Simulated assay, not measured.
Amino acid sequence: MAEISLAKARTMIRKTLEAGRAQEMKPLAVAVLDAGGHVIAFERSDGAPPGRFELARAKAYGAVMLGMGGTAQRDRAEAQAYFMIAANGIYGGQLAPVPGGILVRDKRGRVVGAVGVTGDTSENDLAVGIAGIEAAGFAAEG
């Protein structure tokens, strides 16, 4: 099974943070998880609140555990709130169903992990996260 190496995870984080700085976003935090939902790497920009780890991880964790990016999770929550309430209960309240949770797919389309970005608007978090994932040679599904 393909994996996200530590070097690739660090590239995703670096490129995500660079994209955020280039767009003059608020300080960001980025978590990269493997396909089992385990943290590979995390970093937060200077000035990002300390609680951002949990939120970045929750965005990524929801994406990998449910097999859908944060945008799809948000849409599902709006259409079927009971589904996301149940899923969040099953996963111990660890999901954040909003944009910024991004599935990472390899060249064959297999899910190899997820990235969670938080700190600016959810849509901005999503955009820079996609840039970071693609810069590392993977496909993104937000």
Rank of each mutant, 00 (worst) to 15 (best):
A2V: 10
A2E: 15
A2S: 15
E3H: 12
E3M: 10
L6A: 15
R10T: 07
R14C: 12
T16V: 12
T16C: 10
L17V: 02
R21N: 09
A22R: 13
Q23Y: 12
E24R: 15
M25F: 05
K26N: 14
L28K: 04
A29P: 09
V30H: 04
V32M: 09
D34K: 09
A35E: 13
A41D: 14
R44C: 02
D46V: 13
A48M: 10
P49W: 15
F53D: 07
F53L: 14
E54C: 02
A56K: 01
A56C: 08
Y61W: 11
Y61F: 14
G62T: 06
V64A: 06
M65W: 04
M68G: 05
G70T: 08
A72E: 14
Q73S: 09
D75L: 06
D75S: 05
R76S: 10
A77E: 11
A79G: 13
A81I: 09
F83N: 00
M84D: 06
I85R: 15
A87R: 10
N88Y: 11
N88D: 13
G89I: 07
Y91I: 08
G93H: 11
L95D: 03
P97W: 02
P97I: 03
P97C: 05
G100Q: 01
L103W: 06
V104R: 07
D106F: 09
K107H: 13
K107Y: 07
R110F: 14
V112C: 09
A114F: 04
V115F: 03
G116M: 02
D120A: 12
T121V: 07
E123L: 03
E123D: 12
N124K: 12
D125W: 00
G129S: 06
G129W: 02
I130D: 00
G132T: 09
G132I: 10
I133N: 02
E134I: 13
F138I: 06
A139R: 15
G142Y: 01
